[in-house]
Each structure stands twice: as C-alpha cells, then as structure tokens.
C-alpha cells in the first residue's frame, strides 16, 4: 500500500457561499470523493486556487457537523482573493488538516475566555462550538470580540445568538464608530477588566492580528491569568504545512507543525524580537 503524497491536494467543491463583510467570505467545501478527514478546533487546511496558488486558512466550521469543511477567507491577496470570489459549484484543491488545536479538552473544569480580533473570530469559532456543545464541562465562558468598526463585525448573527444565552458572556467592541453605534468603543484588551471570570485557573484562547494578541496577552496576565494558561494562534507564511520547508519558522518552531496554536509562555520572549 502506498502512502498518499502530502503535497497533492484533493478536489473539493464549493457549496454554499456566504458574504460576511465587505471583504470576508465563508465557503462550505465538500470532498468530491471520499469523506472529509476529522479535524480539531484550531487546525487549518491548505487551500489551492487552481493555477494561482495555495494558502493556509483555518477551519471555521463546527467540527461536530459532518460533510465538508467551512472556511472563512479575507480577500487580502491574489490567492485569498481568488478563493473568496469562488462561486457555488466551483472546484479547489485542499490539503489538511494540519497544525495544533485549541486546548478545549484541557480547559474542561475551568473558566474559558475567548478573545478574538477581526477575522481572528473564524479560527476560534470551532472551539466555541465545541465548548458550547459541552457547556456543562466548563465554568464561566466569556467571549470578547473586537474589530475595526460596526460593519466589520464578523458572524454578527451568531454573536447575537450567543449573547442571548444565559450561560455565555459576550462583549463586543469596535475601534471607532459614529454616534449611531450604541455598543462599546475601544480596544479589545479593555474588555478584559469588564469580563467576569476567575483568573485562577481560567484558560484564555486568543486569535487576531499579532499586535492585538500581544496587548491582549499582557492584559490577561495583568488580570492574574498565568502565562501558561494563555494560548495564541500564530500566523506565518506557511508553504509546505508539514514542517519541511522552513518558510514559517518562528524561533525554534515551525508554525505549521508546532502551531498555529501555541502556549504564550513558550513564545512570549520571541514575540517582540524584530528579526522573528
């Protein structure tokens, strides 16, 4: 029996397409043959736009839902732009899933704090689904979300649905707004002091632009959370996705295989090194 070539993508067909914001689109992808491999919250796939290129995109769907993958893509370049513009019925290539997951099982018994910035809510969404599906196994569950402005709020209906639950605290903030906006304005780390969780033993999962994650991790630590209870999802230029090529080297680690989810105490010192 021969092992499949890890660099050969499998064909997937685009199902439903949902325009989330001005430049963010969610695609449902179904395998053309066989079944979708299981994945864990926080993992990513390499999506291949035929003839254009390949890009690493985190899975944003519910891991308990069978069928295909759900990916949420921001149009920021040639490849992601081509994928974000795909219509239902179009084909693309897919390799994966890859990478380390969010510590959703390890967090059982503790308060859980999700902190997302901008598109960073997409890689966290599978972990949120998983925690809410097993809600009784956790203490308080807090979701803090920050983005640029009210029209940029991702998964708005879902945020509103989660906020209506009595067992989840959801706080949303934007960096700037006009006077019509009745919600919070300010950076997402500012929400940490307003959130109700016990820093002794709470586990924080943070995803967003790297600067936002640094500020957030510092604020979480200042609130009493231990460094080894804070997890970040790192982003680097991933190419092979299996720890061979070195494009995503991050200090002694490769983000594709040692990440993307990494414990903050292990990376805090190199996060501020310019050359890395």
């Amino acid at each position: 029996m021969t092992e499949a070539d890890p660099f050969v993508p499998l064909p997937y067909r685009v199902g439903r397409v949902r325009r989330e914001t001005r430049d963010i689109t969610t695609l449902e992808l179904a395998p053309v043959t066989g079944v979708r491999p299981d994945y864990r919250p926080g993992q990513f796939n390499m999506l291949y736009a035929f003839g254009i290129g390949e890009v690493a995109i985190s899975v944003s769907g519910d891991p308990a839902v069978p069928g295909g993958y759900v990916h949420t893509v921001r149009d920021v370049g040639a490849v992601s732009g081509a994928i974000a513009k795909l219509k239902a019925g179009a084909m693309l290539g897919l390799r994966g899933p890859y990478g380390t997951p969010w510590p959703v099982e390890a967090a059982e018994g503790n308060d859980v704090v999700f902190v997302a910035g901008g598109l960073g809510l997409a890689p966290l969404r599978p972990a949120i689904y998983r925690v809410l599906a097993r809600r009784e196994r956790y203490g308080r569950v807090v979701l803090l979300y920050g983005t640029r402005s009210p029209p940029d709020i991702l998964f708005r209906q879902e945020l509103e649905r989660w906020r209506r639950r009595l067992d989840v605290e959801v706080l949303v903030t934007v960096d700037r707004a006009d006077a019509e906006w009745r919600g919070n304005v300010g950076v997402v780390p500012k929400l940490i002091a307003r959130a109700g969780f016990d820093p002794n033993g709470a586990v924080a999962m943070v995803c967003g632009p790297e600067v936002m994650m640094r500020f957030t991790a510092n604020a979480l630590h200042a609130s009493g959370l231990a460094l080894d209870h804070i997890y970040l999802s790192m982003e680097r230029n991933m190419k092979c996705a299996i720890g061979l090529c070195g494009h995503c080297q991050f200090g002694p680690d490769f983000v594709c295989k040692d990440g993307p989810v990494m414990r903050y105490d292990r990376i805090a010192d190199i996060l501020t090194v310019r050359e890395i």
Partner: peptide, 20 residues
C-alpha cells in the same frame, strides 16, 4: 497610562487596510 496604550493600539489600525 492605560488609555495611552489603548490609543497606540487603535492608531495601529490592526484590522484595517494597512494591516494587510
């Protein structure tokens, strides 16, 4: 000091066009 730090982060516009 806290508000100054918050303003720095807002100024970076980490979710905006320049962050791409």
């Amino acid at each position: 000091e806290g508000r100054l730090g918050d303003m720095r982060l807002q100024m970076l516009d980490v979710y905006g066009e320049r962050a791409r």
